[in-house]
Simulated assay, not measured.
Amino acid sequence: MENLFSFYGYRFHWLNILDLAIVIFLVVQLYRLLKGSLAFNIFVGLLIIYLAYFVVQHLQMPILSTLLQSFINVGLIAIIIIFQPEIRKFLLVLGKKAPLSKDSFFTKLFLPDKFKSYKEEENIINEVITAIARMAGSRTGALIVIANTYRVKFDTASSIAIDSNINAKLLESIFCKGSPLHDGALIIVGNKILAAKVILPVSENPNLPTRIGLRHRSAVGITEHSDNLALIVSEETGAISYAQDGNLVQDVSLEELKVKMYEVMVDGY
Score class of each variant (00 low, 15 high):
residue 133 A to T: 11
residue 117 S to G: 11
residue 83 F to I: 03
residue 155 D to T: 08
residue 120 E to D: 11
residue 173 S to H: 03
residue 140 T to M: 02
residue 111 L to N: 02
residue 138 S to Q: 15
residue 81 I to Y: 08
residue 183 D to C: 07
residue 113 D to S: 12
residue 148 N to G: 05
residue 82 I to T: 11
residue 120 E to Q: 07
residue 171 L to S: 05
residue 158 S to Q: 12
residue 97 K to L: 14
residue 135 M to P: 11
residue 166 I to C: 04
residue 179 S to E: 05
residue 121 E to D: 09
residue 170 L to T: 13
residue 140 T to C: 08
residue 128 V to N: 11
residue 95 G to I: 12
residue 151 R to S: 03
residue 105 F to C: 04
residue 151 R to I: 06
residue 136 A to C: 07
residue 87 I to E: 01
residue 149 T to P: 02
residue 117 S to K: 15
residue 75 G to Q: 12
residue 123 N to W: 05
residue 81 I to M: 11
residue 157 A to S: 15
residue 183 D to T: 14
residue 77 I to S: 13
residue 95 G to F: 13
residue 178 G to H: 01
residue 165 N to D: 15
residue 132 I to Y: 02
residue 156 T to H: 15
residue 143 L to Q: 14
residue 179 S to T: 08
residue 173 S to D: 14
residue 118 Y to N: 14
residue 80 I to G: 06
residue 161 A to W: 01
residue 96 K to F: 03
residue 171 L to G: 02
residue 172 E to F: 00
residue 100 L to R: 06
residue 158 S to A: 12
residue 91 L to D: 08
residue 118 Y to I: 04
residue 176 C to G: 13
residue 157 A to V: 00
residue 140 T to K: 02
residue 95 G to P: 00
residue 153 K to S: 08
residue 163 D to I: 03
residue 177 K to Q: 10
residue 180 P to A: 04
residue 129 I to V: 15
residue 151 R to K: 11
residue 82 I to E: 04
residue 143 L to M: 11
residue 106 F to H: 03
residue 114 K to G: 09
residue 82 I to A: 11
residue 146 I to L: 14
residue 147 A to F: 06
residue 118 Y to H: 15
residue 126 N to K: 13
residue 161 A to V: 04
residue 158 S to F: 08
residue 162 I to Q: 03
residue 138 S to T: 13
residue 172 E to C: 07
residue 167 N to I: 10
residue 116 K to H: 07
residue 115 F to N: 10
residue 113 D to Q: 10
residue 121 E to N: 00
residue 149 T to F: 01
residue 114 K to N: 13
residue 174 I to K: 01
residue 116 K to D: 04
residue 90 F to Q: 14
residue 172 E to D: 07
residue 96 K to S: 03
residue 134 R to N: 13
residue 119 K to H: 11
residue 122 E to W: 10
residue 175 F to H: 12
residue 128 V to Y: 09
residue 180 P to L: 00
residue 151 R to C: 00
residue 151 R to G: 06
residue 101 S to A: 13
residue 119 K to P: 07
residue 99 P to G: 06
residue 112 P to V: 07
residue 158 S to E: 13
residue 118 Y to C: 04
residue 172 E to R: 02
residue 152 V to E: 07
residue 100 L to Y: 08
residue 178 G to P: 00
residue 185 A to M: 03
residue 81 I to R: 05
residue 178 G to Q: 06
residue 167 N to F: 07
residue 143 L to R: 15
residue 119 K to Q: 13
residue 175 F to S: 06
residue 102 K to I: 11
residue 157 A to L: 13
residue 72 I to V: 08
residue 112 P to Q: 01
residue 161 A to N: 12
residue 92 L to M: 10
residue 139 R to G: 00
residue 82 I to K: 03
residue 134 R to V: 03
residue 151 R to L: 06
residue 105 F to V: 06
residue 114 K to R: 12
residue 132 I to G: 11
residue 156 T to S: 12
residue 132 I to N: 12
residue 76 L to G: 09
